[in-house]
Design a binder for these strands. Structure first.
Length: 425
RNA sequence: GGAGAGAUGGGUGAGUGGCUGAAACCAACGGUUUGCUAAACCGUCGUAGCUCGCAAGAUCUACCGAGGGUUCGAAUCCCUCUCUCUCCGCCA
């Protein structure tokens, strides 16, 4: 959510940015409402001030056992007017909020302009230490490999829940668990994150806090009977840990990481990239979240990307870092880098991580502030988050890159202690 | 799921219709005193918004879990909701 004053003073920029992000908010309507709002407040305030002083006068008269009927009658109409003004104000503010909630975050000046993913910029690329580099004759795709090796049972997963709900079996289940533990240990042990284990179902206020609601209601699973939502990412519960709180500046930058299952309806994406692990309704992810001082958040974004990259480097998987153009940057984000791994079978780059600086967009929605010193005015802090990493496409890259000529999978050395085995098959 | 109790400023906690934005104490901060520490004393000590001002700041308004209602006037009375605690029941 953007600051009302910021929208008022930068409405052209906000409008252009919204168009770049393919949204059409009613900025001029917002400005009209804003003006009306201030007029109402002014008028209501004057009347309330009058009511307060006259009420004191009434109290004084009553105590002196004098007649106050005329004043009381007068105040009755004043109170009625106040009530009507307050009602109108409520309506105006509701309309303003409705518009504001659908205005996307303004992108950072370093973000390139572009219509869609074609406008993104590759920042850097790293080759892996792939043991099969250059050998293409025996290359099988991840879904075929997984099926042959018996590490995932898509059919039974679909029987239990539906398509997009994979059932990991045997060494596949162990490998999945190994990846998650390995990544958590990296972030807590080497990168300075404090681990959290979060609720997977959250309330509406949390979803609004991080920006999933109200705009993206269609993308989420809901538990209607209890007014709860299944989280699409651990970003939601982790960021909301400090909702409505004021953190001391000495605790910033605060860094949390955590595992969660992620649930996404992926409505409207059937048939597109849905083979195997490419797009799932439920998957596992390690998420990193930072709470930073505004003047440090962009440096923190770079180190956040490095932390995510570190996983791929240790696992020796080829990847590249992409800076998203404004047209491809998410609703809440001011600047986003994607990490993509190479799938030799798909001959495609696959997104495994998205690292964003939201500046104060989420903090304003969720009311997360910090105070530089005792007695200082609390200010909104900056929130950042990034996947570190999501497992399904990481698994794709791992299987495809570490397959051997005889159809087995070599487990990368750093992962072996977590797996308890050196190969699959 | 049933019964009951509760929610006030950073903390404890007073306050049942007007003089309460809120006592008192604690914590914190500034100062005086002091060889140092301690103690004592004095002062400061919530958030948000409108308007005015270059600014420091000033006026006004709102906020005592949240939202409605009654009233000239609500922390205080009424209704709904949320959360916490206690007891009973059920349960991994």
């Amino acid at each position: 959510m953007l600051d009302t004053k910021f929208i008022r003073e930068n409405h052209d920029r906000v409008l252009h940015n919204s168009h770049a992000k393919h949204t059409q908010p009613d900025i001029s309507g917002f400005l009209r409402l804003d003006e009306r709002r201030r007029a109402i407040i002014q008028q209501a305030q004057d009347l309330k001030a009058k009511r307060n002083t006259v009420s004191e006068e009434i109290a004084r008269l009553k105590k002196a056992k004098e007649n106050a009927d005329a004043l009381i009658a007068e105040m009755k109409t004043v109170s009625d007017t106040i009530k009507h003004l307050d009602d109108e104000l409520r309506g105006v503010e509701e309309q303003m909020e409705h518009i504001t909630l659908f205005i996307p975050n303004v992108t950072h000046e370093s973000v390139p302009h572009g219509k869609d993913a074609s406008g993104n910029i590759e920042v850097r690329r790293k080759d892996g230490v792939n043991p099969c580099e250059g050998e293409r004759g025996f290359r099988k795709d991840h879904a075929t490999l997984a099926k042959e090796l018996g590490i995932v049972d898509f059919e039974r997963g679909a029987k239990i829940s539906g398509s997009g709900f994979p059932l990991y079996t045997g060494k596949g289940a162990r490998l999945e668990r190994a990846l998650l533990n390995f990544m958590l240990d990296q972030h807590t042990g080497n990168n300075g994150y404090t681990e959290v284990f979060v609720p997977f179902l959250v309330n509406e206020a949390s979803m609004r806090g991080t920006g999933q609601l109200p705009k993206f209601a269609e993308d989420m699973y809901t538990c209607a009977a209890d007014d709860l939502y299944l989280i699409p990412t651990a970003e939601v519960p982790i960021t909301n840990i400090y909702r409505d709180e004021i953190l001391p500046a000495s605790e910033l930058t605060k860094k949390h990481c955590g595992y969660s299952a992620c649930f996404r309806r992926e409505a409207g994406s059937y048939g597109k990239d849905t083979r195997g692990f490419l797009r799932l309704h439920q998957f596992n992810k390690i998420e990193m979240v930072k709470f930073a001082k505004p003047d440090e958040s962009y440096a923190e974004l770079e180190s956040l990307v490095n932390d995510a990259e570190g996983i791929l480097q240790v696992l020796g998987i080829p990847y590249r870092v992409i800076l998203l153009c404004d047209g491809d940057t998410g609703f809440s984000s001011a600047k986003t880098y994607d990490l993509e791994v190479w799938s030799p079978a798909e001959q495609k780059w696959l997104e495994v991580s998205s690292c964003s600086n939201f500046e104060d967009f989420q903090a304003r929605r969720a009311n997360i502030r910090y105070r530089t010193e005792q007695g200082a005015k609390p200010e909104f802090l900056h929130t950042l988050n990034g996947s570190g990493l999501a497992t399904p496409r990481l698994m794709v890259a791992l299987l495809e890159h570490y397959q051997t000529e005889d159809g087995t999978i070599r487990i990368p050395a750093p992962l072996q202690p977590y797996c308890g085995f050196e190969q699959i098959g």
